[in-house]
């Protein structure tokens, strides 16, 4: 038996919205420690890693570790049936091999309870070992600013160059019709830390060129949290981390560009 109760369905709705553009189907792992998933896009260039710790749930029970395969588009549709402030219960029986994942949504005043279930599927997907890494540069910035920059530069080109130095981070793109760039200057944290402030921890300048279409997908996680951190080292995958308050994170990894 697994059973996880989230105080607000909206968090889970936002998580699925953040993942479904990049990933169509994924295995979800339930263990004593919580709920996690790792999945790559079909081209194996981008990867997402979700962690929801057991102690972030209102209640959490997992008698035996289970991996359940779901179609994220179907899950997204199902979650549209939940009110944002509904309490959400996810549960599955593993007595005879779970073939469905069940959801119940209870309104804040407990007057309405709805139940839905999602058929599970067998998914044969590659998973990878991601080592713990020290990065050369970590940019911590507003997630809405990140979304805006990706949207703005997508109107110019297909790739973005992210150049981090001690002074700041510059996002730039060029295309047939022209080019554009946005520079965010490093700000030391000051009193009343501005929500839009950008800070950069850096050992040495780092630059990466990345396809904007993947970053547009990653930006779908912005509604989950005010901040995103971008972790960069030359020639290794870039990691974008969106922390989900009190409960976990979504991390996206994107392979660097090939030098032709």
């Amino acid at each position: 038996m697994i059973e996880a109760v989230l105080a607000q369905a909206s968090i889970f709705k936002k998580i699925v919205e953040a993942l479904k553009e990049l990933i169509s189907e994924t295995n979800i792992d339930f263990s004593e420690a919580g709920i996690s998933l790792q999945a790559m896009d079909s081209s194996h260039i981008a990867l997402c890693n979700l962690l929801l710790r057991d102690d972030g749930f209102k209640s959490y029970r997992c008698d035996r570790a289970l991996t359940l395969g779901v179609n994220l588009n179907s899950l997204s549709k199902l979650l549209k049936c939940a009110g944002n402030d509904d309490e959400m219960r996810i549960f599955a029986n593993d007595d005879s091999g779970a073939d469905q994942l069940n959801f119940s949504f209870e309104s804040a005043n407990s007057e309405r309870v709805s139940e839905f279930s999602l058929k599970l599927m067998d998914i044969d997907a590659d998973s990878v070992d991601i080592p713990d890494m020290d990065y050369q540069a970590i940019i911590d910035m507003s997630s809405s600013e990140f979304s805006r920059i990706i949207r703005d530069l997508s109107s110019v080109g297909e790739a973005v160059s992210i150049d981090a130095t001690k002074q700041g981070v510059k996002f730039s793109s060029a295309g047939d019709a022209g080019k554009g760039s946005i520079l965010l200057k490093h700000q030391k944290s000051v009193d009343g830390d501005s929500a839009l402030a950008t800070s950069i921890e850096i050992n040495e300048p780092v630059s990466h060129s990345l396809a904007l279409k993947f970053l547009s997908s990653f930006a779908k996680a912005a509604p989950l949290t005010d901040r995103v951190s971008i972790h960069m080292t030359e020639d290794v995958p870039v990691m974008f981390e969106f922390k989900i308050s009190e409960i976990g994170h979504i991390r996206f990894y994107l392979a660097p560009q090939i030098d032709d």
Partner: peptide
């Protein structure tokens, strides 16, 4: 267009 390498060439398969 941007050519990017597979993540499998960076991270080992589990």
């Amino acid at each position: 267009a941007v050519n990017q390498r597979s993540l499998l060439s960076f991270f080992g398969k589990k």
